[in-house]
Simulated assay, not measured.
Amino acid sequence: MSVVEQYARAHIVTDEDLREDPGAVPVILRYDPDTDPRSVRVGLPGTNEWTFSRALLEQGLRVPAESGDVRVWPLGRVQAVVELHSDHGTSVVQFESKALLRFLRRTYMAAPVAR
């Protein structure tokens, strides 16, 4: 099976000076069915990759979902938020939902869910 990699643009939500929009940053979405067919990885600029359940990402696009240090929820009709907690703090990342949906579709083409 093949690895799925997709670059997306996302906004890092911060409480720093809210008068200036820092703009979108590049984020890498990865899925390797040979290594871990149930998980996806999100790589933010300047940090390590976060690994969490592919099912959590899918569920969080419809309704708020949480597992461990990761929360995902829809934000209106066209955006989604991924909140990542660590010992070093919290990262809140806002995506266009269609980018995450496109990524999920590609992962299911690479490795359908085993039933």
Results as ranks from 00 to 15, higher is better:
Glu16Ile: 00
Glu16Cys: 03
Leu18His: 14
Leu18Met: 10
Arg19Gly: 07
Arg19Asp: 07
Glu20Phe: 13
Glu20Arg: 15
Glu20Trp: 12
Asp21Glu: 14
Asp21Ala: 11
Asp21Tyr: 11
Pro22Asn: 14
Pro22Val: 00
Gly23Met: 02
Ala24His: 13
Ala24Tyr: 13
Val25Tyr: 02
Val25Pro: 00
Pro26Thr: 06
Pro26His: 13
Pro26Ile: 07
Pro26Gly: 04
Val27Trp: 03
Val27Met: 00
Val27Lys: 06
Ile28Pro: 00
Ile28Asn: 10
Arg30Met: 01
Tyr31Val: 03
Asp32Met: 08
Asp32Cys: 09
Pro33Asn: 15
Pro33Trp: 13
Pro33Glu: 10
Pro33Thr: 13
Asp34His: 08
Thr35Asn: 12
Asp36Pro: 00
Arg38Leu: 05
Arg38Val: 07
Arg38Thr: 08
Arg38Cys: 03
Ser39Trp: 10
Ser39Tyr: 11
Ser39Ala: 11
Arg41Tyr: 11
Arg41Asp: 04
Arg41Cys: 06
Val42Gly: 00
Gly43Asn: 13
Leu44Val: 01
Leu44Met: 02
Pro45Gln: 01
Pro45Ala: 03
Gly46Trp: 02
Gly46Pro: 06
Thr47Glu: 03
Thr47Ile: 00
Thr47Tyr: 01
Asn48Ser: 09
Asn48Thr: 12
Glu49Ser: 09
Glu49Thr: 10
Trp50Asn: 09
Thr51Gly: 10
Ser53Gly: 06
Ser53Ile: 03
Ser53Pro: 02
Arg54Trp: 06
Leu57Tyr: 05
Leu57Phe: 05
Gln59Met: 08
Gln59Ser: 12
Gln59Trp: 11
Gly60Asn: 10
Arg62Gln: 12
Pro64Phe: 01
Ala65Gly: 10
Ala65Thr: 14
Glu66Ala: 09
Glu66Pro: 02
Ser67Val: 12
Ser67His: 15
Ser67Thr: 15
Asp69Pro: 03
Asp69Trp: 08
Val70His: 10
Arg71Thr: 11
Arg71Ala: 08
Val72Ile: 03
Trp73Cys: 05
Trp73Pro: 00
Pro74Gln: 12
Pro74Trp: 07
Pro74Ser: 07
Gly76His: 15
Gly76Asn: 14
Gly76Trp: 15
Val78Ala: 09
Gln79Glu: 10
Gln79Gly: 08
Gln79Thr: 12
Ala80Asp: 05
Val81Ile: 09
Val82Tyr: 06
Leu84Asp: 04
Ser86Thr: 14
Ser86Asp: 15
Ser86Pro: 08
Asp87Ser: 13
Asp87Met: 07
His88Cys: 04
His88Tyr: 15
Gly89Met: 00
Gly89Lys: 05
Gly89Asp: 04
Thr90Cys: 05
Val92Ser: 02
Val93Ser: 03
Val93Phe: 03
Gln94Glu: 07
Gln94His: 09
Gln94Asn: 14
Ser97Ala: 08
Lys98His: 11
Lys98Pro: 05
Lys98Cys: 05
Ala99Leu: 04
Leu100Thr: 06
Leu100Asp: 00
Leu100Cys: 01
Leu101Ser: 04
Arg102Cys: 01
Phe103Lys: 13
Phe103Asn: 09
Leu104Cys: 04
Leu104Pro: 03
Arg105Trp: 06
Arg105Leu: 00
Thr107Val: 00
Tyr108Met: 03
Met109His: 14
Met109Arg: 15
Met109Leu: 12
Ala110Ile: 01
Val113Asn: 15
